[in-house]
Amino acid sequence: MDAHLRIVALTGSVCLFLVVFELVRQRRLLERYALLWLACALGLVALSAWDRLLQVLADALGASYPPSALFAAAFFFIIMLLLHFSVAVSRLADQSKMLAQRLALTEQRMASLEARARRSDLLADGEHQPTPNPQEVL
């Protein structure tokens, strides 16, 4: 890999690493997700800085042009990250569905308890007994 390309690759991956690190430091990125990003950034830094490693990877992949092995590695990392996020989004969607359902059930339960409390207040006040209409409490 020639010097120019290496400088670009190295700068890019170091910047990525620093940005992720800064996001974690500011607590804008959960460590759970940050670890994956940091691992990706470190991998890219290592591959851009260390010629031998890239050569080994290129040989293993059968790539005659080592920088293309660097792209392949970056591409692989990105696919893995996206997959990870799809899994995370699916889980969040599932959780938000459950929350919405619990909220609806709880709101209804609370409204019915409030209505019942109002009714028993009326009774306690010595009012005439209201006919127990189970439907008025809605």
Binding site: A100, Q101, L103, A104, L105, E107, Q108
Partner: peptide, 30 residues
Amino acid sequence: ARREHAVVLRHPFNLGIGGAVQTGFLYAQE
């Protein structure tokens, strides 16, 4: 539906038919 004296459960946002029916199952179960 409330005016018709049905019990009403209201989702804060649209969950789709599957989520809505499952809320019904949860209510029936509880």
